[in-house]
């Protein structure tokens, strides 16, 4: 199932990235917040991947080219502003998408209806930090600006139609743009300029083309399972 893989891989990969903050977050409270979000996403990934096959096999035994996540979610954590910018772009999208899916009667409606509440919190978390970093100190403003610019070219891919999702993708993009713009304006920032998709690479994650940082991340995520197949504790 193309759509279950696409949405499931988005949740799985972002969950792993957020989990990388454990032990490294700027403060303990934020570490717990990011880990909470990661666990929410992992729960969604389990449900979605189970719709597509065996969740463990899919998560741990597929090669890089078989993953269908968007390239945005595999981007490295960077500084805290990069993580927040990635969260803002992605969770705003995911909330809108799940709202749409929950309204329909497709196979994802039950999951979407439940997960949309979790994602609303993720989006709120990202918004709160975007406001504070954007409208904080000179340095936090600059870092947030740089992070939003750096990840901008990965946002176009979010609105590539996914086979099996009955969604008005262009309407979703419009709603996303206006929500993100509203937050950035309040944060004394503005929507990045420049292309939101790159002809060369950005936008091919759904076809299995991934960026360089994805390989090492996958190796770390999969090595335990691959070294000790079927291990339990």
């Amino acid at each position: 199932m193309t759509a279950a893989l696409a949405l499931g891989d988005d949740a799985l990969v972002l969950s792993h990235r957020l989990g990388e903050w454990a032990g490294h977050a700027p403060v303990l409270e934020e570490e717990v917040a990011l880990a909470n979000i990661a666990l929410d996403l992992l729960g969604q990934a389990r449900v979605l991947l189970s719709l597509a096959g065996d969740e463990d096999e899919l998560a741990y035994l597929r090669e890089e080219r078989a993953f269908r996540n968007v390239q945005l979610v595999e981007q490295p954590n960077g500084d805290f502003a990069h993580t927040i910018a990635r969260q803002l772009y992605f969770s705003t999208y995911q909330e809108l998408l799940y709202e749409e899916l929950a309204r329909g009667d497709g196979p994802f409606a039950p999951l979407a209806a439940k997960a949309v509440k979790e994602v609303a919190y993720h989006r709120d978390h990202a918004e709160q930090w975007t406001l504070r970093l954007g409208d904080g100190t000179e340095e936090s403003h600059q870092r947030m600006r740089r992070a939003l610019d750096a990840l901008w070219r990965f946002t176009g891919e979010l609105f590539e139609p996914v086979e099996g999702c009955e969604v008005e993708w262009s309407a979703l993009h419009g709603a996303w743009l206006s929500r993100v713009t509203a937050v950035l304006t309040r944060a004394t920032l503005s929507l990045p300029e420049g292309p939101w998709r790159g002809a060369w690479a950005a936008g091919a994650g759904r076809q299995g083309i991934h960026t360089e940082p994805f390989g090492p991340m996958l190796a770390q995520m999969q090595h335990l399972h691959r070294s000790h197949p079927g291990a339990a504790w």
Partner: peptide, 20 residues
């Protein structure tokens, strides 16, 4: 107790630390 930059963030941190 917890640390937070302001009341709104304190409320969110409290949600994550004490009601999850």
């Amino acid at each position: 107790s917890l640390h937070a930059p302001d009341a709104e963030m304190a409320l969110r941190n409290a949600r994550d630390l004490y009601t999850r």
